[in-house]
Design a protein around this nucleic acid. Structure first.
Lengths: 293, 293
DNA sequence: GTTCCGCATGAATCGATAG
DNA sequence: ACTATCGATTCATGCGGAA
């Protein structure tokens, strides 16, 4: 990836992703995580793709994504169909079918359950509290590091976890993420379980600087699951840079593309104030000498 | 519906639902809730429909469902696609597209989050913890009674609800469901909120008598949301009778169809031991005189 | 009458073995 | 080669029995 001028942390590219993706070498990316502009959204930057044209708009881009992804790589597409004329539009169903014709395997559909979804009331539907995280791969076998996202078992969470201090939790997390120490499965033993394909995460609503499509937690989870440190993660619709932030925190390299100079600026500002998680821990311990292991 | 010989509670019909549905009058049903046999499942009763043939198998049935449903009615289809050769099969996506061509409106997709999903570990996926509850309607406007499924807000649930006895909860539920007392929204006031389109419910696995496809809670929720007392609810794949049980408990009339005499027997046995929720309360209070309001 | 522990039980999926 | 069956894997829940 040296020809990409990818520094130690990553690269942010300004421009149309279909054009810029063509400049990347084939089979060079370990993971693609993205939340593309939803139909009729972001009109000021992408021109607001009409639902009926969404598949035709996306397919040339996904063809380039297929080319740059390693055979062992994964492609996570976070998306949710809009309501049009009182019913769910079918462009995502059609997109899944079209991507399969393009060669992608529709390996799994994860659900992001938005614990704090947007408020509102309508006569014929409730608040929409979930989005699709479609998992596509090129091959039947692909890289997956399940131990990296293990969670406390229900029993353990309600009884023992509640007794741990916040500092304990932070320290434990960072140790695992930095690759030091034992595997979680050995370390905690039977107190940890593998997660399911339903992710419970709150949306980030407090941040006034940027309107992130998804919380850092979401790309972080998939990055831990599908890549190792120093692997390369691509987000062709970087937006406010959430995927790149997750990469820095987890010591992965990123390639971020966006067509909007405003968003690129926001992403670069966020990244400049962003450190790997182990380093964050180090800073925290420097500042706070009261911690005892 | 008198020509159906529908008694005060409902009717259970033994036979092929495509045939039997043709005998029902048009526009006579308020709600259809069903969980059809999934592809390649239940081979002993339904012959195990192959994934590739699923849409063709289902369309003649859904045509009859369309005919018997009132214009203001809803059709809830609980289903989940299998994994075939390491990827999710697309027959449900194709089914949604085909149902729309048949005239159905794909109004919403609710998610049933199965808190206790089937265990297991595989190299390329996690446990499947969710199923689709597809909501189809005939018209843009349809009957929906949102107040009937309001839920306590987090604060209230964790503080006051946990202090209530089981009897209290039964009493409260039955009052609301039977139409006695105030609307929940007035009764609890600001402590109640509307739910989202994500339903958190555990599967019923402990029951030795029958293996219900879904918990009574699931059809109950949709029945409360889309019907009023004495309305008619249809389940063309009744199975062990869970939908009919929910109808009895909520004082709705049911039409249940199943092709398996064994399942019909199980359903009838369950229904004979089944009472409306207000009556359950009455029995509970007869037995337990210690309750003070 | 509580609370706590042990146990059986699932609309599952994969890989290996057998026809 | 391609399909059919079987064992191994794994965890939240609700029941019954025990302290």
């Amino acid at each position: 990836m040296d020809q990409l001028d990818l520094n130690r942390r990553g690269s942010i590219l300004l421009g149309d992703c279909e054009v810029l993706l063509a400049t990347l070498p084939p089979a060079s990316v370990d993971l693609i995580v993205t939340s593309p502009p939803y139909a009729d959204q972001r009109k000021h930057t992408y021109g607001g793709i009409a639902p009926d044209q969404y598949v035709d708009w996306f397919l040339p881009i996904s063809a380039e994504l297929y080319r740059v992804l390693k055979p062992s790589g994964s492609f996570i597409l976070n998306i949710k169909e809009r309501v049009v004329d009182g019913e769910r539009h079918t462009y995502i169903l059609e997109l899944i079918l079209a991507l399969r014709k393009q060669g992608w395997r529709w390996t799994e559909e994860y659900i992001w359950h938005k614990k704090n979804c947007y408020p509102g009331k309508w006569p014929n539907r409730f608040r929409d509290a979930w989005e699709r995280c479609l998992h596509f791969t090129k091959e039947k076998q692909f890289a997956m590091y399940q131990d990296e996202v293990m969670v406390p078992t229900g029993d353990w969470a309600t009884t023992r976890l509640s007794n741990l201090s916040e500092t304990d939790k932070v320290r434990d997390n960072s140790r695992v993420q930095s690759g030091f120490g034992k595997k979680i499965s050995n370390w905690i033993g039977r107190d940890m379980a593998y997660p399911t394909n339903v992710l419970h995460m709150a949306t980030e609503c407090g941040n006034k600087q940027h309107s992130a499509a998804f919380p850092v937690e979401l790309p972080s989870w998939f990055i831990k699951l599908f890549t190792q440190p120093d692997d390369i993660v691509l987000d062709p619709f970087l937006g406010s840079g959430t995927t790149a932030v997750a990469c820095v925190e987890l010591c992965r390299r990123y390639i971020g593309i966006d067509i909007s100079p405003e968003f690129i600026k926001i992403a670069e500002d966020r990244l400049s104030a962003c450190y790997p998680k182990p380093l964050q821990l180090f800073i925290a311990e420097e500042t706070n000498g009261t911690y005892n292991s």
